[in-house]
Write a protein that binds this DNA or RNA. Sequence first.
DNA 1: ACCTGAACACCGTTCAAGT
DNA 2: ACCTGAACACCGTTCAAGT
Lengths: 192, 192
Amino acid sequence: MTVDTRQSIMDEAKLVVQAHGYSALSFRELAKTVGIKNASVHYHFPTKGDLGAALARQYSDEAQAFLNCLPLDRDSAAQTMKTYTDAFRAALERDNRMCLCGIMIAERDELPEMVRGEVDRFTEINIQWLKSFLEALAPKAGASEIMDRAVAIFSAVEGAQLIARGCADVAVFDRCMNAYGATALFPVWPSK
Amino acid sequence: MTVDTRQSIMDEAKLVVQAHGYSALSFRELAKTVGIKNASVHYHFPTKGDLGAALARQYSDEAQAFLNCLPLDRDSAAQTMKTYTDAFRAALERDNRMCLCGIMIAERDELPEMVRGEVDRFTEINIQWLKSFLEALAPKAGASEIMDRAVAIFSAVEGAQLIARGCADVAVFDRCMNAYGATALFPVWPSK
DNA sequence: ACCTGAACACCGTTCAAGT
DNA sequence: ACCTGAACACCGTTCAAGT
C-alpha cells in the first residue's frame, strides 16, 4: 500500500501528454486522478515545466537504454531497423498515442526551456543512433551524407507516426514504413 | 480605412496558430492585438472552434487551388516535386512557422470536431494530389502501391517540417528533401 | 450590425497554514 | 515530509445591455 505519489503523478501525466500533448496537461485534473489536491502536485513538481522535464528526461533515458541494446552488425540490420520503427509503432497501438517527445516537438515553442532541452536530447539521441547504424552499414559513406540520411529517417518516422495518429489507423504507419523500405530511404528493411 | 475586423482576426490568428498551435491561441490576446474587446471576437466567431475551422478551411482551399495549378506532365515532374516541397519550406522561412494544418494534426485530439474535419481535409487534399502525381508518372503501378507511396511522401514532408522547426533550421528541411530525393522516396527530384 | 462589461467556471501558481 | 484552502491572474464563453 506504499504508493509513490510522485511516480503516480508521472505515470498519469505521461499518458495524458502522449495522448493530448503538454499543453493539455492540467495539474487540477492530474490531482483529481491521483487523489490529492491541486496544490499538492506542486509539492512534488514546483511548476508544470518541472513535471514536463522529468517526463522527457525519463523518456529520453529509456530511449537511450533501448537503443544501446540494439545490435549494429550487418546480419541483423534488417531486423534492427524493424525493431527501431516498432518502438514508434507501439505507441500508436497503445490507444493511438504518440511518442512523448514527438508530440512535444510540435509544441516546442510553448514549452518551458527545461522541457525543451530534454525534448531536444531525445531527437539528438535518435539521430546519433541512426548515424551509428548507417555508418556500420556503409563505412565508406561521407559524414555529411550519413547525417542527412539520419535526420531524414528520423523525420520520416516521426512524420508517419503523426499522420497515422491523425488517421487513428496503425495501418497507415505500416504503409509508410513499407514505402520507406521499398524506396530505400531505409538502408535495410525485412523482405516479406 | 475600412479595415475588415473579421479578416484582421483571422490574419492574426493564422500567424499565432502557425507559430504556436491552436491551443496557444487566446481570444483575449487576439482581441488586444486587433484592438477590440475579448467579447467582441465572439461576435465574429462564436467559439474558438469556429475561428479554427474558418482558418483551416481557408488554408485547405488555398492548398487545393495551389495544387490544381501544378503541372502533372513527365517533363516538369522534377520541378513540380520541388515546387510542392517548397510550399512547406516557405512556412519555415517565414519565422520558423509550420504548415497551419501540420501543426494542428499534432493537436488533433484536442481540436473541436469542426476544426478536425477541416484539418483532415487538408491531409486528404495532399494525399489525393500526390496520388495523381504518382499515377501520371507511373501509370502501370498498382493502386495500393500508389496509395502507400502518397501517404509516405506526405508523412515524410510533414515530419521534416516538424523536425526542422524543432531545430529552428531550414537547412535540416533541405537535408531531408535531398535524402528523400536521393533514396527515391520521391519519384523524381531535380539533380544539381 | 457591431461592440461592450460583467459574470461564470476553468487554468497554473503561490503561500501561509496545517499534520 | 507531505498536504491543504484560499487567493491571484490567466483562460473561453455567455449574456444582457449599449450604440
